[in-house]
Design a protein around this nucleic acid. Sequence first.
DNA 1: CCTATACAGTACTAAATAGGTCCTGTTTAG
DNA 2: CTAAACAGGACCTATTTAGTACTGTATAGG
Lengths: 162, 162
Amino acid sequence: MIRIGKLTDYGIVVMTHLARDPAQAVMAASDLAQATSLGPSTVAKLLKVLLRAGLLVSHRGIRGGYSLSRPAEEISVGQIIGAIEGPVVMTECGGQPANKCSMRHVCTAQSHWHRIDDVVREALESLKLEELARPLRLRKAGALQRQPGDQQPADRRRSKRP
Amino acid sequence: MIRIGKLTDYGIVVMTHLARDPAQAVMAASDLAQATSLGPSTVAKLLKVLLRAGLLVSHRGIRGGYSLSRPAEEISVGQIIGAIEGPVVMTECGGQPANKCSMRHVCTAQSHWHRIDDVVREALESLKLEELARPLRLRKAGALQRQPGDQQPADRRRSKRP
DNA sequence: CCTATACAGTACTAAATAGGTCCTGTTTAG
DNA sequence: CTAAACAGGACCTATTTAGTACTGTATAGG
Ligand code: FES
Ligand code: FES
């Protein structure tokens, strides 16, 4: 599989949404959540991670929200993935040289993995957020209602509310 | 992380061991397990998977075991990974066009992911088992370009439980 | 023919990770 | 002062992965 996690894909989606905004306006987490039909909590968590990685800037207070810290051309999907999942490596041999890897005694692929990782990293780095944000310009503006077959996280707000 | 699973790494190790044998001799699963210091059951399972994928041939009976089905130059790490983990894709958008992906409504990265996947797949396909099996002590000083402040993502606390 | 050996297939449990929710602060425009 | 919205966690749950076991079946060699 060699997969990236769902969260990371969400991250791409959210970042793309931000990047598409013409005026780089500040957007609140809840707005973003609604726009992407993802769970508000999930989006909030995500945004915090992206903020910490320096990909976003936040504005606190009543009219607060998030916006990109840099132009979309200077943000790569590699950076987004890196922010959410950690360094882009495929094996235990990640980052560190061959002293940390638990199977270095028996595996002869160390240097090769590093090479593979490099290729992947480069491919990911070369794809910029701007490129993702460009093509879609839906004229259909208000289709944010609940979509039946769509992904709707378990809504368990069953607090005992009098 | 974009990681391959441990099993897959084991698979590479086991295959490399097979490939290193000068006479392509048949090796029993238990021997392989001992040689790699992996669990016998784990190795046995792994070998079955690799067999099914056509990368190995098996020899049953009292002097049985496994050997490569093809010369090591014709087996790529991509094939090994594919055998154990399934198709090499990074997102839900794997293989199938954009009908199966659960977030196609909101994500604009479909085609881009396919491109990335292609690059990774190609890199993995170009690295042959023979190349892994060949060098025993390839010590090349300074061959790897390490980036000191490479990524600075959410720091994953890997609790080390002995 | 008989039997020990080693593969074939599958079922199962345990551990690890990822996904998702919630709560308790802090900051700040109005 | 207050409400909106971020900051930073703690927390639980679901899914995936890793690892093991067990019951067959084929076959070389005595
Ligand atoms: S993965 Fe680190 S030695 Fe093979
Ligand atoms: S991953 Fe399939 S649409 Fe983005």
